[in-house]
Design a protein around this nucleic acid. Structure first.
Length: 311
DNA sequence: AAATACCACAACCGCCGGCCT
DNA sequence: TAGGCCGGCGGTTGTGGTATT
């Protein structure tokens, strides 16, 4: 929280009006009222105009932020539910620090809120977890169930070392973006504290034991167990370089499926073919647009996000 | 009761990409 | 094509509140 700055000052960050004076710092109730009533009356337009027409000595950007993160009527207040927590962790494991994309799957939550929640709470839990399990963790045991301060997940959830670096790339290629957005567009949404799962034709499909699958068009891409456990099956996207070798990579993706657990074995056999079909479909569609340059992509690969707490 | 440490989160900052002229 | 404007995003900062000593 910052103190309201009584004296308007320069805001060099306001992209266009560097010479104008704007208030900074915390918003006063009067400012909130002005912005709120203006937005409800006139709706969103150009934020610079909003700021001016609402009679605020704020830059448009500041108004936008205040509205989106605080004043919006549809914002959900209060602590994150366990379901929301799980979904955030789940989505973060898939797409990294794309807070806006994650927020898009949690109605009533803002990217800023989720980002703060992640940095202050979840990151800390995972840090504690990694320090307490370091000695006993067996990287070869994919079935190991782990408990992180209130939620349980299989270690598969965290085994995206092959998968995540590309997603963490600070400047992903357009090809990556395309594929990633395809994935993101099919990620589940959370409505009113529970998963919203279209039963027919959606990306979720009921299977045994409360496990839900979400689909990439024709194939299973991941699954969520709504007990308390989250299982992840993700193809090793970073391995995909060209259309010519993607069959091998699809096979690798299928091989990422755990094979030690007997229940999962039969279950995985069922979906193995679906994954192959789905991933094939995806890359046949997407790879027509370009090629993966693996070496280029791996240049700025960062470490596995769950293990990177250096900041 | 006071001092200190820690936490949560609102808001800022800087960069980027799209759009328009 | 270049440059300016604008909105959006992720990273970071800083402060009020709370817990601990």
């Amino acid at each position: 929280m910052r103190k309201p700055d009584p004296s308007p000052g320069n805001n060099k960050d306001d992209n266009n009006n560097n010479n104008k004076k704007y208030r900074k710092g915390l918003w006063s109730p009067e400012e909130d009222d002005k912005l709120m009533s203006y937005m409800l009356k006139s709706g969103q337009g150009c934020w610079t105009d909003v700021a001016r027409n609402a009679g605020l000595q704020r830059c448009g950007k500041s108004c936008r932020l205040r509205w989106i993160n605080y004043l919006r009527p549809d914002l959900k207040r209060g602590a994150f539910s366990p379901q929301e927590e799980e979904l955030i962790i789940h989505l973060h494991s898939l797409i990294g620090n794309r807070w806006s994309q994650i927020a898009a799957r949690l109605p009533g939550r803002t990217d800023n809120e989720i980002k703060n929640f992640w940095n202050s709470t979840i990151k800390k839990r995972l840090k504690n977890f990694s320090s307490t399990t370091e000695s006993s963790y067996d990287p070869n045991n994919k079935d190991l169930n782990i408990n992180i301060a209130g939620f349980t997940s299989t270690t598969q959830h965290y085994q995206h070392a092959e998968f995540m670096p590309i997603l963490n790339s600070s400047s992903p290629s357009s090809m990556q973006e395309t594929v990633l957005n395809t994935i993101i567009d099919r990620l589940p949404m959370l409505e009113h504290g529970i998963m919203n799962m279209p039963a027919d034709g959606g990306f979720f499909n009921d299977t045994i034991d409360n496990t839900k699958d979400f689909y990439l068009e024709n194939g299973v891409f991941g699954s969520v167990n709504f007990g308390s456990e989250v299982d992840m099956f993700v193809p090793a996207l970073e391995s995909v370089k060209t259309t010519s070798d993607h069959n091998v990579k699809v096979e690798n993706a299928c091989n990422n499926i755990d094979t030690n657990n007997s229940y999962l074995n039969s279950y995985n056999n069922k979906i193995r073919g679906e994954i192959r079909d789905g991933v094939e479909n995806l890359f046949q569609e997407e790879l027509a647009m370009g090629e993966w340059d693996l070496e280029e992509l791996m240049k700025d690969v960062s470490s596995f996000p769950f293990l990177d707490f250096s900041s």
